[in-house]
Design a protein around this nucleic acid. Sequence first.
DNA 1: TTGTAGGCGTTATCAT
DNA 2: ATGATAACGCCTACAA
Lengths: 333, 333
Amino acid sequence: MSQRDFVSADEVARRAGVSRSAVSRAFTPGASVSDTTRQKVLQAAEELGYQVNHLARGLMRNESGIVCLIVSDVATPYRSTLLRELTLQLQLAGKVAMLINTDRSDGSVNRALEQAIRYRADASVILSGLPDKSITELCLRSGQRLVLINRDEDQSGAFHINLDDREAAGRVVTAFVRAGCSRLAFANSEAGTPSLMAREAGFIAAAKEQGLDVIVERHGSTGYEAGRVVAQRLLTRKERPDAVFCATDLLACGLMDAARHQFSLSIPQQLCIVGFDDIEQASWSSYRLTTFAQPIGAIAREAVAWLSQGGVADGRSLTLQADLIWRDSVRGG
Amino acid sequence: MSQRDFVSADEVARRAGVSRSAVSRAFTPGASVSDTTRQKVLQAAEELGYQVNHLARGLMRNESGIVCLIVSDVATPYRSTLLRELTLQLQLAGKVAMLINTDRSDGSVNRALEQAIRYRADASVILSGLPDKSITELCLRSGQRLVLINRDEDQSGAFHINLDDREAAGRVVTAFVRAGCSRLAFANSEAGTPSLMAREAGFIAAAKEQGLDVIVERHGSTGYEAGRVVAQRLLTRKERPDAVFCATDLLACGLMDAARHQFSLSIPQQLCIVGFDDIEQASWSSYRLTTFAQPIGAIAREAVAWLSQGGVADGRSLTLQADLIWRDSVRGG
DNA sequence: TTGTAGGCGTTATCAT
DNA sequence: ATGATAACGCCTACAA
């Protein structure tokens, strides 16, 4: 390691002609220091380029200020938007985000949480994957807060933020029926995460109420390419669907592109499509996708509010509604 | 704050019937411990759910394992991809990423670096913005490494990774001329970052060598919407351009969509377009954009290799080439 | 190989 | 309001 030499409170104290404690107090909001000494300290610190060592402070205060964000597929539009919002809110709350990428292999969520513990993170936010119960219990027992976004509901003590996926799916059926569609399909990935499966189940159930069957096709991960593959399967059937609900916008974009450029179908005339997430691309004029907007701002705000609150926090569950954004991929908006 | 109670090395030592130091050694690769005690310690740790406190360890070792990633516009395709790659490489190198969002206001890069110092980050990687020299010197002086990606060249002691933007721009002119284009335009944002301006300058210079003028149009930030606005300006001129080089793919997508859907132009027959970054959307069948692929993997690898190397590191500069990806937005690939 | 003692840079407690 | 002193949890000589 190269030589590291950060300036310490001692040096500031010496230069300002006060004690270490005075320096500490000058950097602690609400501590009892006279204005004159505070000024002396602040000036000395400025001149030396002193910054409080948060490693040491965290050790003492038993509060690191660190919040771990555990996530896979960061490069995905929806994920990266959520990430942006979370980091922003965290910073506003005086916290700092530690980003842990779980793209590689399974069980990596567990390893990520261990990392969170090692850095004594005040809280962890899980955006992807599902950790084992033993490790989340360890977190909770250690006093580390846990927020699960769009994850399953089985971790007591943690804060769950979910969308009402089933309700949303029901509205899609209504929209499709109103558009005169009758051959419904659902495009999903093989990921099988709770929220994705809830959309699928909700769609099927609502369709059944209308006396309609649903063709379900699943493939790969939740991306553009998977959408193309699913389109291939769906649009070569003898009984071609006239309406597809896609579990995510990325799937929808892939499916829409294939439908247009490979099968020469007009949208929404010959095929209605609804997506989920309202990623930026959904509004691009090549897509103009009717889709559900996740309340990303609200999710981030609620998450940060909960994890940065003082006092003992109980586990809790919050269900938010997704907004249906009408654009041009369904007839008769 | 709720009660926090992480298990410490003391407790592990007691349970394993050894001393604290034995515990420490058991978790230090290459320390001299007998296999039997190591096993005892590891088992006790496992049972108690012990994890080494990296705050304390960082304090002692003078090496936190933290690397700060300083970035704005995280939700942008190119940025988020780079972020994914960097976090992955960092984790492979045994480091952990601290993400600092500088979306708000100016001078926030300076604040971000101060944050990096407070957490005693081993290094900082700057993906956006440009810090004041005084603060980067403080970082360097404190022994914190600095990597600047696609930033300006004026920070000595830091590691600079840049693309050869001018060379790339030159190749675009060649491609346009070969496609029979003669009314060249450059679409840029008003951001004015070094790499963006280098692409612009390089394009103009290369065109001049061919005896060609370039219409330059700049607007807003580097996004899809700006591309639409620029298209508006460019395509309503009496002398409509027949080839546009866009500073980024996002601009290119916006411009292409406007050209097609608003001006009913065929691409590449009536208008050739080249972008930069090779974001995922560039390959989608609605765009099939000819563009430059940033060597993101190499950038991330080089950055992490440099910042995690032992010993004293000198400032250094690395220039990488961008690969031209031929797709369908230029005639005669 | 093992345990003991001292120190890393803070903050909190206690006098003054 | 200020300064000395004791933690916080860990690592690392040093001694055994």
